[in-house]
Amino acid sequence: MRIPKDQNKPVSSLAAGAAWFLRPVVITSALLSSTPASADGLDTAYFLAMQPYAVLKRASVACGKPIGEHVAYKQRMLDILRGVPDIDIRAASRDIEQAYQTDAHLGGLDCTDGLQDRYKQVIERGVDRDLEYLAEEVLNRQRRNQ
């Protein structure tokens, strides 16, 4: 396949980073939705729930925050996702880890003030909020499939 010259321009690192960051969302959509190209409440809730995990794990790796926080968060998230009919839990687990990898790729593995601020915001806001939203959307999906 030949690419026209004007489409062969280099992509900025920001655009490439954004594309890399959105990759898990597209994969998640394919896993959780009956129509891969559509986004529904469950896709959004899943994406939002992955963000605190990425911050908790990055803070654990980079800043020495408690490992148990991100481990427990991921386990709770996977327990909630088990309620989705026909979900591939292993693929979901890989997607959650990919969210961390993407966050680490974009933000680095140094313990920065910015990372510590994000960690503080996640803790102060409460990690349950995103998990509760995810659980609510899983329940909505179950009701629609009955």
Rank of each mutant, 00 (worst) to 15 (best):
A49P: 01
A49L: 00
L81E: 01
R90L: 08
L81G: 02
D113V: 10
D103F: 05
D86T: 14
L42E: 03
S13A: 12
K5E: 12
E69V: 02
Y53Q: 00
G64E: 09
D103I: 02
A104I: 00
E136H: 07
K74M: 02
E97S: 12
C111W: 06
V127N: 14
L31A: 10
P10G: 01
A18F: 07
S12T: 14
I67R: 13
A30E: 13
L78M: 11
E132I: 15
P36N: 14
A92P: 00
H105N: 06
L78R: 07
A15C: 04
Q116C: 04
D103W: 01
R82H: 02
A39H: 10
A19N: 15
A49S: 08
L78C: 03
I89E: 01
R129I: 14
R125D: 11
I89A: 02
D88K: 01
V61S: 04
E124N: 13
A37V: 15
H105C: 03
L106P: 09
Q116T: 11
G17L: 11
V122C: 07
E124I: 00
L134A: 00
G83N: 11
A135K: 11
I96L: 13
R58K: 08
A99W: 06
P10A: 05
V61L: 02
V138G: 04
D88I: 01
D79N: 14
L106K: 10
G17V: 07
P85L: 04
A18E: 08
S60A: 11
E69Q: 06
R118P: 10
L56Y: 09
E69I: 05
K74I: 00
I123K: 14
V61M: 08
S33G: 14
N145L: 11
N8H: 09
L109M: 10
S38K: 14
L48P: 03
D86W: 05
V25T: 08
A104G: 03
D113M: 13
E137V: 05
P52M: 07
E124Y: 03
T112L: 04
P24F: 00
M1S: 05
G126N: 04
K57F: 05
L14H: 12
G64H: 05
A59W: 00
A18D: 09
P10C: 02
V138E: 04
L106H: 10
D79Q: 12
I80N: 10
V11T: 14
E137D: 11
A54F: 10
P52S: 01
V84P: 06
I123D: 06
A99H: 05
L139Q: 15
D40W: 10
K120A: 13
D113A: 15
N140D: 13
D40Q: 10
S29C: 15
R82L: 03
G17H: 09
Q51C: 00
